[in-house]
């Protein structure tokens, strides 16, 4: 019986199902491939820093930022260009 498995038989019973599976898989993953990598909480972050409406619209290197003067974490000393008493909120997820 095995000798009767012709190329046509393989095409019908292997080739076509494989093609259908490939098309369905492509349709499923097409949107995520087009969107690129997506943020997934808990996994590592891959992208460089983005600062929207920052100073001169630059993307600073965190290592080159100036040191804050010593003081409580919620306040900064008064001075030109330095925020005095600050407020806000924090959250984590």
């Amino acid at each position: 019986m095995i000798t009767q498995l012709s190329g046509h038989t393989l095409l019908v019973f292997v080739g076509i199902p494989a093609l259908v599976i490939a098309v369905v898989a492509l349709l499923v993953f097409a949107s995520s491939i087009a969107d690129g990598p997506r943020y997934r909480p808990g996994l590592s972050w891959w992208a460089p820093p983005v600062w929207i409406n920052g100073p001169e619209t630059t993307k600073p290197d965190p290592a080159n930022l100036p040191e804050l003067p010593a003081g409580p974490s919620t306040t900064a000393t008064a001075g030109t260009g330095v925020a005095r008493t600050t407020g806000g909120a924090s959250a984590s997820w």
């Binding site: 460089p48 820093p49 983005v50 600062w51 929207i52 965190p62 290592a63």
Partner: peptide, 8 residues
């Protein structure tokens, strides 16, 4: 202003 990135 919005900053998205890691902190050291």
């Amino acid at each position: 202003s919005v900053y998205v990135g890691g902190a050291d």
